[in-house]
């Protein structure tokens, strides 16, 4: 990668560090949900898609079974398949490099990569790989820090950890609420999940909310 533009480096690094810090919140949430430090680190190393990781441990914390947790995490990561679709023609890699590109295909690497389009194809590739590697590094380091921190503090409620998790979800949701209709969809999903909570088996109210997405996306609104 000769002569990566300075602004590409700057974008990649600043996104990596900010998002990586979020890993501490995941590490803490995962330990508070009953996962060991080792399991928590494996989730960040192997799953490596933040919202799905938070969802998996969140469903377990809400009393849901393993299958519900895995299914919710999988649904939440379905957007990564669309990111892969957009990135793959820019990357042009095969074999193990393609597998690594897939593992690093997340919101941040895709967005920084595609944001470099005006600077040319090399900058797109550099933006994707630098952001993927940077977020992977910082996300995993801070996951470990958060997990060890949470392990040493005992009662999660006394330290506000039980509110840090929904706050983290809110932080992931906020930038997606761009238009009025999407805001309504989010509110409907919140109401649906709360109404469903006393009726459905524990942990399944969250995944059942997908029905709201199907309703919202069924007709073309544009």
């Amino acid at each position: 990668m000769a002569a990566v533009p300075r602004s590409t480096w700057r974008d990649a690094l600043s996104v990596s560090l900010t998002v990586g810090l979020y890993g501490a919140a995941f590490g803490a949430a995962s330990v508070a949900a009953g996962f060991s430090v080792w399991q928590t680190c494996l989730l960040s190393l192997l799953t490596f898609t933040g919202a799905s990781q938070f969802a998996a441990v969140g469903v377990v914390a809400a009393g849901g079974g393993a299958l519900t947790a895995v299914a919710t995490a999988g649904l939440l990561s379905s957007r990564n398949a669309l990111y892969g679709l957009q990135m793959t023609p820019h990357l042009g890699v095969k074999g193990w490099r393609r597998a690594l590109a897939a593992q690093w295909t997340i919101d941040e690497s895709t967005n920084v990569g595609l944001a470099q389009l005006p600077l040319g194809p090399d900058a797109v590739r550099a933006g994707f790989w630098l952001t993927g590697a940077g977020v992977y590094f910082f996300w995993n380091v801070f996951t470990l820090a958060g997990a060890l921190g949470a392990k040493s503090i005992g009662n999660p409620a006394a330290w506000g950890l039980d509110a840090a998790v929904p706050a983290a979800f809110l932080g992931l949701l906020w930038p997606r609420l761009r238009d009025r209709f999407t805001q309504l969809v989010a509110l409907a999903a919140m109401a649906f999940s709360l109404l469903a909570t006393p009726v459905l088996p524990s942990g399944t109210a969250i995944i059942a909310t997908v029905i709201v997405a199907i309703f919202a996306g069924w007709r073309d609104r544009s």
Partner: peptide, 30 residues
């Protein structure tokens, strides 16, 4: 198009549900 539209709303509804449930539910009661 329909797959893409639904897929775009999936993170919004699941994150919304996670915010609500983690804030205001405790196992199966509110």
């Amino acid at each position: 198009p329909r797959v893409q539209r639904i897929n775009a709303y999936v993170p919004v509804v699941l994150l919304g549900a996670l915010v609500a449930v983690q804030t205001a539910a405790s196992k199966t009661h509110l």
